[in-house]
């Protein structure tokens, strides 16, 4: 009853790390060096938020910090800022996790969308205040909208491929603990 972490949790943690690794590597592959005029969704962020909203025990704060710090270093972003904002957002979502189970999906999506918008705006404001060269406003906002829109498909994929869904009331893990 006291343990919240069982062997299934460790398996799902390994799956999350592997998924993060694949997402980072896919973006690094040098296929076409021409600059694109449009920005796709931030899949790493969307996947992390789905995992946190559904199974917060699996993704711990140090793991999120580590993954996003590595992403910051590889993708030539100012190191530490985006990672810190993501950790703060995931902690806030983690605290609301038990409320999400009773609310319809749209409420969860709306909260996540609000969180992503706040995070992007904070990032923009801090980078502009500190006069750090950053991407154009249009591309950043496009990426933010795409990340919000891609959240429901990622939820479906997570459910069908990895079995990550909302815990039913009374659902227990391997050790008999309530999820």
């Amino acid at each position: 009853m006291a343990e919240r972490v069982d062997s299934r949790t460790w398996t799902m943690r390994a799956v999350y790390i592997a998924l993060a690794f694949v997402l980072i590597v896919v973006q690094l592959v040098p296929l076409d060096m021409r600059p694109a005029g449009w920005a796709g969704p931030d899949l790493l962020l969307a996947v992390t938020l789905v995992w946190i909203a559904r199974r917060p025990v699996v993704v711990t704060a140090p793991m999120v910090a580590g993954v996003f710090l590595m992403a910051d270093l590889f993708f030539m972003r100012p190191p530490g800022l985006w990672a810190a904002l993501v950790v703060i957002l995931t902690e806030m979502i983690r605290r609301r996790n038990s409320e999400f189970r009773n609310l319809p999906f749209v409420a969860e999506w709306g909260t996540i969308a609000g969180g992503i918008i706040m995070m992007t705006l904070l990032n923009l404001i801090i980078l502009t205040l500190l006069a750090v060269p950053r991407a154009s406003l249009g591309l950043t906002l496009m990426e933010m909208m795409m990340t919000i829109l891609v959240y429901p498909p990622i939820v479906l994929l997570a459910y069908f491929f990895f079995g990550i869904g909302r815990p039913a009331p009374g659902e227990t893990g391997r050790k008999g603990q309530l999820l």
Binding site: I24, Q27, L28, V29, P30, L31, M33, P35, A36, W38, A39, G40, F74, F75, M76, R77, R134, A135, L139, T140, E143
Partner: peptide, 14 residues
């Protein structure tokens, strides 16, 4: 030999 891209649409480097 070029190994990787920059990874994001905002930075252009290899």
């Amino acid at each position: 030999v070029v190994i990787t891209d920059s990874g994001s649409p905002f930075r252009q480097s290899v």
